[in-house]
């Protein structure tokens, strides 16, 4: 298979209530494509966490999903503040989310760790003041 199927989403940073919508759409697409339920779940959860992160910390960004029969790649890109200490950010329970968001039940410090847990590979490229790009891949086992 040469060219991957690409889905592009703009994640609106000003509208917290719409956070997570891209992930729901991707879930529907993957279902139509006939991926196994556990693959769909892993993609949907890691994408959901990433989307929420972009809305909370970076004022939104873009999400691109590239689908091939053997792998699904999710690229999340924002022009937010960047991550100061990636190692610290990867620790479960560490969070810099504001109280306003925590009161809604977000900001538990599980976003990035969950994204790593549910994907086979995760690369974080970040620069302070410039933004963050996260590339995640989920491998599809041969049936």
């Amino acid at each position: 298979m040469s060219e991957p199927l690409r889905f592009h989403f703009d994640v609106d940073g000003s509208n917290f209530t719409s956070a997570g919508e891209a992930s729901i759409q991707i879930k529907q697409k993957l279902r139509q494509l006939g991926f196994a339920p556990d693959i769909i779940k892993r993609v949907a959860i890691s994408m959901y966490e990433g989307e929420i992160n972009m809305v909370i910390h970076a004022g939104g960004g873009t999400a691109d999903v590239y689908v091939l029969p053997e792998t699904i790649k999710i690229v999340l890109e924002d022009h937010g503040p960047g991550i100061a200490d990636v190692e610290l950010a990867m620790q479960e329970g560490f969070s810099t989310a504001p109280d306003s968001v925590r009161s809604l039940g977000f900001g538990a410090g599980m976003g990035l760790p969950n994204m790593k847990r549910y994907t086979d590979n995760m690369i974080i490229e970040t620069e302070l003041g410039k933004g963050t790009k996260i590339t995640m891949t989920v491998n599809v086992p041969r049936q």
Partner: peptide, 11 residues
């Protein structure tokens, strides 16, 4: 809602 049996074809 599956488009095709085979993922390749569905893509």
């Amino acid at each position: 809602s599956q488009l095709a049996e085979n993922t390749n074809e569905a893509i």
